[in-house]
C-alpha cells in the first residue's frame, strides 16, 4: 500500500510518501491519527517480527498472533513512546516478552514442541543408500530440518539471542537492549547457543554441515 502523509516542512505543508518516512516520523503521524502511517510501520516490520516469533514459538499461527499483539500494544501506547530508543528495539522487545510468556504458559499447560532425540526415532528414517547420493537441494533441506530441530531444543534465553543475531541480523547492542542484559551477556549467550546447537545437530545425526 502506498500512501502519503502531510508533513510540516518549516511551516509549509508538504505531501511526503509514507514509505520514505523514518520510523519515528511514522509514529508521530500515527499519534496524530494517520492510520496509513501506522500501517506502513506494520508493513516494515511484519516479516522480521513474525520471523522472530515463529523461531521462538514454532507455530506460524501463534507467531502471527503474537506479532499482531505486539503491533497492537505499540499502537495502544503511541502517546507514551519516546524516540530515546530505536523503534525496532521497542517492537522486538515487546514481541520477545510476549513470546517468552507464551512459551512459559505453554509449558504450564503441558503443551510445547517436542523434538525426538532418541536413536529409535532416527532409525525410522530410511538409511541413505550411498550408491545414490542425494542431490544438493535435498541435502540442504535435511540440514535445515536438523537446524530447526536443534533450535527448538535450545532454551528460550539462548534461542532468542541466536535468532535475533543470525535471523534478524541485529547487533549485540540492540540485542542487549531487547533482552535487557549486558552486551557481555549477549556475547556469551550467543557463543553458548552456537555451541549447544552444534552439539544438538551432531546428536540428531549430523555429519558436517
Amino acid at each position: 500500500m502506498l500512501g502519503f502523509i502531510l508533513v510540516n516542512d518549516m511551516g509549509r505543508p508538504r505531501l511526503e510518501k509514507v514509505s520514505e518516512q523514518s520510523d519515528w516520523d511514522l509514529v508521530a503521524s500515527a499519534r496524530d491519527g494517520d492510520m496509513a502511517a501506522f500501517a506502513e510501520l506494520v508493513k516494515r516490520y511484519e516479516r522480521p517480527v513474525v520471523h522472530f516469533c515463529q523461531r521462538m514459538v514454532r507455530s506460524r499461527e501463534d507467531a502471527e498472533d503474537l506479532a499482531q499483539e505486539s503491533f497492537v500494544r505499540v499502537f495502544r501506547y503511541l502517546e507514551r513512546l519516546t524516540p530515546a530508543a530505536k523503534f525496532s528495539t521497542l517492537l522486538f522487545g515487546i514481541a520477545r516478552n510476549l513470546a517468552l510468556n507464551f512459551i512459559r504458559d505453554s509449558g504450564r499447560r503441558g503443551r510445547g514442541v517436542t523434538y525426538s532425540l532418541t536413536d529409535e526415532d532416527q532409525s525410522e528414517k530410511p538409511l541413505e543408500d550411498e550408491s545414490r547420493r542425494p542431490d544438493r537441494e535435498a541435502r540442504l533441506h535435511e540440514i535445515d530440518e536438523r537446524i530447526e530441530a536443534g533450535l527448538a531444543l535450545l532454551s528460550p534465553k539462548h534461542r532468542e539471542v541466536l535468532v535475533l543475531r543470525e535471523l534478524n541480523g541485529l547487533d549485540y547492542n540492540s540485542i542487549a537492549e531487547i533482552v535487557k542484559c549486558r552486551k557481555g551477556t549477549v556475547k556469551s549467550r550467543i557463543a553458548r547457543a552456537r555451541e549447544q546447537l552444534r552439539i544438538h545437530m551432531e546428536r540428531l545425526g549430523g555429519e558436517e554441515l
Binding site: 500494544r73 530515546a84 528495539t89 537492549e177 535487557k180
Partner: peptide
C-alpha cells in the same frame, strides 16, 4: 510492557 517513557 516496559518500554515506554524511559528506554530501560
Amino acid at each position: 510492557g516496559g518500554f515506554f517513557a524511559e528506554p530501560e
